[in-house]
Structure formats: C-alpha cells, structure tokens
Amino acid sequence: MIGLKEPDNFDGEMAMLWSSSAMVRSAKGMATLVALAAMGLGAAQAEGVDFTAPVDPAAAVPTYAIELKDGELLPPTLVVPAKTRFRLHVTNTGTKPSEFESNQLRLEEVLFMGMEATMMVTPLDPGDYDYFDEFQPGVMGKLTAKEAAP
C-alpha cells in the first residue's frame, strides 16, 4: 500500500512540480511578452526618431526643409510618413543657380541664388524617391516614405 501511495505522492509532487514549472513558464512567457512589447515600443520609438523633423511640428500638413548649396543637398536624406501629403521648402543657399527636380515626386523648380520655393508633394506609397539639383548632376538625394508606427 505504501508502495502504491508513493506513486500517488509522486504524482502529486510531479503535478505540483509541473504546475509550478507551468507557472514559471507562463511567468517567463509573460516576461517575454512584456519584453517583446517593450522591444516593439522601442522599435516604434526608434522609427519615430528616424523620421525627419518637420519645420513646424504643429502644422496640419508638415513641411520639410531642403537646402541646395552649390551641388550639395542638405539634408541628403529625408524620411517622411507615407500616404499623407506634405510640403517641401527648398532654398538655394549656394552661389550658383539650381533646379530642384524629381521625376518621381513630379517636382521641378528653377531657383536662382537666394531664392526659395514651397512645393506640395502628393501622398506617397512607402518607398524611396530621388531628388536632385539638375544643374549640378551627379549628386542624388533620397526621400524615404514609410508608414508611421500605429
């Protein structure tokens, strides 16, 4: 009988062990979930950081500034939210005339020295789009449109 009891106890113990291990596991699971969620948030925040800051953050339609300076594009890369319209404010701060151009964004604007122009860009699908100064060939700027984190 004692011999029979042992397995019972044993079973009981095993059950206890199992349940506790399950608890441990579920706790681990929770921790993993929490960690994942935290990572997810972190990634989302990192993505948020990646977006280029608009000139006026409060505006309903964001505006991003680009400077053309004798062949230099400042900044050479822009990251903007996809599927929403925005403006580009382009200034020629160089000593030569420039032509801001992008076939992919349907933009073209001749800018004499010291001149500036604001252009509306229609909503973009996620992807990369080039912009450049047609009068200074060879230097290519890249505008990336990506979905904002939900």
Binding site: K83, R85, S102, N103, Q104, L105, R106, L107, M119, M120, V121, T122, P123, L124, D125, G127, D128, D130, F132, M140
Partner: peptide, 28 residues
C-alpha cells in the same frame, strides 16, 4: 495634380505607385 489638385482629397488609389522599376532604370 501637385500644384492645383493637392488641396483636394482625391481618392487614395490615384496616388498609389503601380510599379517600381527604379532598380532597372531610374528616371533620375
């Protein structure tokens, strides 16, 4: 489209990219 119709909310599909061949031959 970008200068005079941009103020209007046209349906989104009008703006969606149909294909991307910029890896093959970029128009830049």
């Amino acid at each position: 489209l970008s200068k005079h119709l941009s103020a209007y909310d046209l349906p989104g599909w009008i703006y969606s990219t149909v294909w991307d061949a910029s890896g093959f031959l970029s128009d830049s």
